[in-house]
Computed example of a mutant assay.
Amino acid sequence: MKTSGNRVWLTYVLSDSDVPNALTLCFSLRRVLTSRRLAVIVSPKVSRVSREALSYGFDFVFTLDEERNTAGLENEDFVKLFALTLQGFEKCVMLSPNMLVVKNCDELLDKEEDVQQTFVFAENGDSSILRLRPSLQVFNCLLKQLAKRNGTGVDSILKKWLSDQTSQLTFIDDKYNQHLHEKASFLREEKNIAIVNLKNKTPHELDYVGEMVLQLWKSIYDKSVLPLLNAVANVRNQLL
């Protein structure tokens, strides 16, 4: 029997430089009182101290198994496929580590209309947010196709495969992937913004809402993330 515990928020850390963003995303989800658990996929290249810090924020820490990357993908692309191998979960919503959750949006994990759809992208094609259903069969199938991609982008192949499998695609609403630099959208959709994409942080020329989002990111980082990183680093230093 499936339970809410089988549905998780998921992100990834491919280098130590991703850790501050990933933890800030983590604490932003806790700030809005998500009822779901949080998971992170970590590259073997990430340092032990960073991994320890992540274990204090996230409920689950998985290691990216690079040996399964038989298609020779960049880790940033392979991690999207690797999430399909997490068979302990019924459904995951994968967020890029540079995202910030500003409102509770557990409904993304509650939606059932995409039962036959393995991946759900944002309608604008941005894969910074993905809803997926883990499946080893789909993982192996896509890996074989991607091995023959001949320069075609990974996202393009995933979307084409999905279109071939599903007659009527569903999409993730734009409010769950609002880019910070899209000033007009912020002014028009302030009440509907749920998750912000901070990939292109541009502190100058932002409207009021954009400035508030950056302030929120900094507040979460200063109050929750930085003390955690410092505490873990201090413990490690004392043990050396």
Rank of each mutant, 00 (worst) to 15 (best):
Q238G: 10
Y56A: 05
E107T: 05
V19R: 05
S96V: 03
A233M: 09
V196F: 04
A147L: 04
Q145M: 11
D65P: 09
K201T: 01
V120K: 02
Y208N: 14
E112T: 13
K2Q: 12
K183Y: 08
K148E: 07
D155K: 05
L100A: 09
N192T: 14
E52V: 03
Q116P: 12
R188F: 07
Q137R: 06
V8R: 13
D65W: 10
L180C: 02
E123K: 12
R149V: 09
F121H: 07
V42M: 04
L239E: 11
Y176L: 03
L33A: 13
V235H: 09
C92S: 14
L108I: 02
R188S: 12
Q116C: 14
V42E: 02
L33G: 13
L130N: 04
Q145V: 08
D222N: 10
L130W: 05
R133W: 11
F60R: 11
E205N: 11
L81F: 05
L108G: 01
V42F: 01
S128K: 03
Y56N: 06
R188Y: 12
S28A: 07
L100T: 04
E123T: 07
F27I: 00
G72Y: 12
L146I: 08
A233P: 01
K159G: 11
D174N: 11
P134D: 07
N124V: 06
N69W: 03
G57D: 01
K91F: 09
R48G: 13
Y56P: 01
S219M: 08
Q87P: 06
D110G: 02
L146S: 06
Y56L: 10
I193P: 09
L142G: 08
